[in-house]
């Protein structure tokens, strides 16, 4: 197979698996939440409820595609598209296994992925603004402020890894973890990255932009049908993205004994996704000012300390 053909096969394969995973996770999450909350969850359609995804899809596709007359039409349509594309684009640089992955982008894979996560906030902000609805606007404002705050630690938390590996190239970072996963020396960075990643894709406990208890549904109040579906699937793709980046940066990527590399990557990915869902099942939603204070007063100093300590130790070991 020629280089172009294998590249295309890679790109399409990863795209199809991701969208499928995003849709499948809607069912997996509800079953897991049911398990942890001592109830069943969707278990009626197909074996163990697997076909619930198909039922949801059919329902959501046949709903009326409704744009409110008071909305800003262009931005209203653009927002759900950004929600999916920005996060899908970030996967272009995630190295799944040797030979599987779209590109390494001249060794700037990590900043590219961070930039795409940063751009994904436009989906929430635009949806909130374009809906011309007070609840949506508040949700959009919260999303913008939250993203700006937590993006700082998202970037700072991975810089320790970059210092240790000496590269922004994700494949080089995985290769540098052959002896020891960075989750061990960079345990603070790992925790900060997970928390900041959750905030970046606004998952509970950081889902203040769509807090149902106060903002109805926040930025997507006015959305229905497949446009809402794109926000929904986009959120799950975000979970997979943050988990995949955490696996690559801190858990040794595809490295592992005995089993094939692809399987190792998927096992680590599944464990982290499970952890993310468990966080939703276990944690309450904080108040908005608590969220901001936690970010700036606890996470920022910790990230800076971690960075300084890593730099000092690396310099001393030279």
């Amino acid at each position: 197979m020629s280089a172009t053909a294998s590249g295309l096969a890679n790109a399409f394969g990863i795209l199809v698996v991701l969208v499928g995973l995003g849709a499948g996770l809607t069912w997996i999450e509800r079953r897991l939440l049911g398990l942890w909350q001592d109830r069943y969850g969707p278990n009626r359609v197909g074996p163990a409820g697997v076909l619930q995804v198909v039922a949801d899809m059919v329902k959501i596709l046949f709903k009326e595609d409704w744009v409110p007359p008071f909305a800003d039409r262009a931005a209203f349509v653009l927002a759900p598209a950004i929600a999916m594309t920005a996060l899908l684009l970030a996967f272009a640089v995630v190295p799944v296994a040797p030979g599987i992955g779209v590109t390494d982008l001249d060794g700037i894979g990590l900043p590219f992925a961070l930039a795409m996560i940063a751009l994904s906030v436009y989906s929430t902000v635009l949806a909130g603004w374009a809906s011309n609805n007070k609840y949506s606007l508040l949700g959009g404002l919260r999303a913008a402020a939250q993203m700006l705050s937590y993006e700082v630690f998202l970037g700072l938390s991975v810089m320790g890894v970059v210092m240790q590996a000496g590269s922004f190239d994700l494949r080089a970072i995985v290769a540098a973890q052959r002896g020891l996963w960075y989750a061990a020396p960079q345990c603070v960075g790992f925790l900060l990255f997970l928390l900041a990643g959750m905030a970046g894709i606004h998952r509970l406990p950081f889902d203040l932009p769509e807090a149902e208890s106060e903002l109805v549904a926040g930025y997507h109040v006015e959305y229905s049908g497949m446009k809402f579906g794109m926000f929904f699937v986009g959120e799950y793709i975000g979970i997979v993205l943050v988990a995949a980046l955490a696996v690559t940066l801190f858990l040794g990527g595809w490295l592992g004994p005995a089993l094939p590399p692809l399987l190792w990557f998927l096992i680590k990915l599944a464990v982290l996704i499970g952890l993310v869902i468990l966080m939703r099942a276990a944690l309450p939603r904080p108040r908005y000012d608590q969220l901001m204070a936690f970010g700036w007063k606890a996470m920022l100093p910790l990230a800076l300390l971690n960075l300084t300590a890593t730099g000092a130790i690396l310099l001393a070991g030279r």
Partner: peptide
């Protein structure tokens, strides 16, 4: 994002 935040 900051600009859009202020305008919003």
């Amino acid at each position: 994002v900051l600009f859009i935040f202020v305008v919003m």
